[in-house]
Design a binder for these strands. Structure first.
Lengths: 162, 162
DNA sequence: TGTGAAAAAAACACGTG
DNA sequence: CACGTGTTTTTTTCACA
């Protein structure tokens, strides 16, 4: 359990975060032009935002298409039986499968919903049959193929109170 | 429609991409130590991977909790009526709502599945009632709240053929 | 493909209000 | 203590061998 203290941000912090969510490689000088602060202020604020854990990390986003990953899907997984150690066992498998990008426990009919990528439908089917359904706790899997992204971002809305 | 030519990568490219997917701020020297190539090779390869569009961009990932975003959900949206210009109208609304991170057209019962963040359940409900359900083409919305992430990454599996 | 120079940026220390 | 300025070190970029 993480104790995530919510942080109060001012408008400048919010703008810095917005800018970095779009482009993590901005220099402090470039940032300063966007935010209308001095470069040194930008540097200090950014460092502070990193230390506070608001900025978790910087990552490169790759093109699934160019990597030959043509299939994405959401998979609703239902368990046969439940229990803490069963969930733990499931978790250990989940993290090792690189085709699983996300795995959430959810409200509703399913126990978990997974976001998955695969090279093609055959690879996707193989993943489902031989990796997911072969897990003993998994009773049922229902898939929704993701056809077209009307929107796809990791950019969180940043509110500022001060 | 994007013509996404799939690119053949060798093992070094794959390792560079893997490293940058974990940490976009690695210097070429740091990269060279991970990948076991010279720094200049890393620089050239990275530039090439960017130019080819395999690396799309570099982004900062923020902490939803610290930003006070306690609610995430998948929402299955069903349309009243269908048609190209209706979809287009929907799309235009979608992109403007910052609480919508992703919006996919999907196979299955729903027309679209959205990934949404909100500050709390009230904000989430407000979004659903006053933003989603008020759209004329939206007939029905079904929500799955995301409770706990067993896994959450943007890291795509990189295969190399050469 | 590595090497080295030049430019840019980051990290850090220093005064000043 | 907060802020800008200046210095040192690192990093990037690019030309050359």
């Amino acid at each position: 359990m993480k104790t995530a203290h919510v942080v109060e941000l001012d408008r400048q912090d919010a703008r810095i975060l917005d800018a970095l969510q779009d482009n993590a490689r901005l220099s402090n000088v470039e940032l300063s032009e966007i935010v209308h602060l001095s470069p040194s202020q930008c540097q200090r604020r950014r460092q502070r935002l990193e230390e506070m854990g608001i900025v978790q990390h910087y990552v490169a986003q790759l093109s699934p298409e160019k990597l030959g990953l043509t299939v994405m899907a959401l998979m609703s997984v239902t368990f046969e039986r439940h229990g803490e150690h069963i969930a733990q066992e499931f978790r250990e498998h989940i993290v090792d499968y690189p085709e699983i990008l996300e795995c959430w426990s959810v409200t509703g009919d399913a126990d978990y919903i997974l976001k998955v990528v695969a090279a093609d439908l055959k690879a996707f089917n193989d993943f489902m049959m031989y990796k997911l359904l072969s897990l003993p706790m998994v009773a049922n899997v229902r898939s929704n193929l993701l056809l077209e992204a009307l929107k796809s971002t990791t950019r969180l809305p940043v509110h500022y109170g001060r």
